[in-house]
Simulated scan of single mutants.
Amino acid sequence: MTLDNLPTAVLLIALIAAAAIDIKRHRLPNVLTVSTALLGIVFQCWLYGWSGFLNGLGGFCIGLFLLLPFYAMRWMGAGDVKLMAAVGIFLGWPYSLLAVALTTGAGAVAALGLLAAKGGLTNYLRRYGAMAKCLLLTGRVAYVPPEQEESSTLLFPYALAIALGTFATLAWAGRLDTFLDLLIGGVHV
């Protein structure tokens, strides 16, 4: 692994730490998200200068602004949004968009799995099926409230979805093999 690949290794270590902390505490500390973001800016500037800074800033904005509505709807915590913004700095603007999309998909699948494990998936699908049927038949949006509030109280460690979406993005970009080389073969500077 060369020094150019060091940011990928640091990002993956930060994501593994974030996922482990989120699974255990259901909260991401600012010291982790902010230090990850600062390291991302340092790496972008060190390796690519001003263009790296601007690319990282673009990735930060994508990660922040695309997940901010989910925070506003209380579907995720602020730490998750900050972590995705930090990931965006490391990935830059084109790949951060892919990471958000893959993260959202991983989060949706995991949330449905959690609902199924807790026995709430059938009611969830029934509710949203009724709302979709109303929209298709009448053209009007209707809200069917849940029978129980148990699905809204389920805690899901979204940092795990962010890690999975980012791992998939890094694999797509061909940047994951350098981290595997580090684990298997060591560092070559």
Rank of each mutant, 00 (worst) to 15 (best):
L98S: 04
L57E: 11
T169I: 05
A106L: 13
P7W: 00
T166N: 07
G58F: 04
M131G: 08
G119R: 14
A72E: 13
L183D: 06
L97Q: 04
W93M: 11
C134R: 11
S151P: 11
V10T: 06
F179M: 09
G107Y: 03
A9I: 09
L136T: 02
V42T: 10
G40C: 15
L121T: 10
D4T: 14
A9W: 07
L68E: 09
G105S: 13
D80R: 06
R74Q: 08
V100Q: 06
H26R: 13
T36Q: 12
V42I: 15
A142W: 11
C134Q: 12
S35I: 11
L136F: 09
P145W: 14
M1Y: 08
L15P: 00
A168W: 00
Y158H: 06
T2E: 03
I13F: 06
S96Y: 01
G174R: 15
D177V: 14
T103A: 05
P157Y: 05
M73I: 09
M131C: 12
I21S: 02
P29G: 07
T104I: 07
G77P: 02
V141E: 08
L102E: 00
G113H: 09
W75M: 13
N30V: 02
K133T: 11
L68M: 15
L164S: 14
T104H: 04
V10G: 05
L6Y: 04
F70R: 08
T138Q: 01
A106T: 13
L137K: 15
A101C: 15
M84L: 12
A130T: 10
S151M: 15
V34C: 09
F156P: 01
M73F: 08
I89F: 12
L39P: 06
C61I: 06
L102G: 02
A20H: 00
M131Y: 10
A108R: 05
L135G: 04
C61S: 07
G79T: 01
A78G: 10
A106G: 12
H26A: 12
I162T: 00
N5I: 09
V34Y: 13
N123H: 13
A37Q: 12
A14M: 06
K24A: 10
A130V: 11
W50A: 07
L68D: 11
I184H: 09
A18T: 02
G129A: 13
L182R: 05
V87P: 01
F156Y: 09
G79K: 03
L154I: 15
T178Y: 14
V109F: 02
P157K: 03
R127F: 08
G113R: 07
A18H: 02
A19H: 00
L11A: 08
P7R: 00
P157N: 07
L155N: 13
S35C: 11
G59R: 01
I16K: 08
R175E: 15
I89T: 10
L164E: 11
A72C: 14
V187N: 12
L164G: 11
Y124D: 07
F43E: 01
I21E: 02
A142L: 12
M84Q: 10
L115S: 05
F53R: 02
C134H: 12
A14Y: 05
T36S: 14
T104M: 08
H188T: 13
A110T: 04
G88N: 07
V81S: 09
N55H: 04
P29I: 07
G77I: 05
L97V: 06
V187Y: 14
I162M: 01
A132T: 13
P157H: 06
